[in-house]
Amino acid sequence: MERGEEQLALISVINTLAGRFPGRSRTDVEDAVCEEYSAFNAGPVRGLVPILVERAATKRLEGGLL
């Protein structure tokens, strides 16, 4: 996955999670996605990064972490 494609996928993750968590601010959602992305950013295999970020950010938002 190219970096540009990855960035578009992460924007999609943010939009999805913002819809899934209407009680959370968009800033909270963006922060969760960015923090989780930083944990996966150094890996050489890029194709699954958006999916892994979405799962981790979902857990963070469900747990009220931020």
Rank of each mutant, 00 (worst) to 15 (best):
M1C: 10
E2I: 04
E2A: 08
R3E: 12
G4H: 07
G4P: 00
E5M: 03
E5R: 09
E6Y: 00
E6Q: 14
E6N: 02
E6I: 03
Q7I: 14
Q7D: 10
A9Y: 06
L10T: 09
I11K: 12
I11M: 12
S12G: 15
I14M: 13
N15C: 06
N15R: 14
N15A: 15
N15L: 07
T16Q: 13
T16P: 00
T16G: 08
L17E: 05
A18E: 12
A18K: 12
A18C: 05
A18I: 02
G19I: 02
G19V: 01
G19Q: 15
R20Y: 02
R20S: 12
F21G: 11
P22Y: 13
R24F: 04
R24M: 08
R24G: 06
R24C: 10
R24W: 04
S25T: 15
S25N: 08
R26C: 01
R26S: 02
R26M: 03
T27L: 12
T27N: 10
D28S: 14
D28Y: 04
D28Q: 15
V29M: 03
V29I: 10
V29R: 01
V29A: 08
E30C: 01
D31E: 10
A32L: 03
A32N: 04
A32K: 06
A32M: 08
V33C: 09
C34R: 13
C34M: 12
C34D: 07
E35M: 11
E36S: 05
Y37E: 06
A39P: 00
N41A: 15
A42R: 14
A42D: 14
A42P: 00
A42C: 05
G43D: 10
G43P: 00
G43L: 09
P44F: 09
P44V: 04
P44N: 10
V45P: 00
G47D: 15
L48T: 11
L48W: 08
L48N: 09
L48G: 06
L48R: 13
V49W: 00
V49E: 01
V49D: 00
V49I: 15
P50H: 03
P50T: 02
I51P: 00
I51F: 13
L52A: 09
L52C: 10
L52W: 13
V53M: 02
V53W: 01
E54N: 09
E54K: 11
A56T: 04
A56K: 13
A56M: 04
A57F: 03
A57W: 10
T58C: 02
T58S: 12
R60G: 02
L61R: 08
G63D: 13
G63I: 01
G63K: 11
G63R: 13
G63M: 04
G64H: 06
L66N: 07
L66K: 05
L66Y: 09
L66H: 11
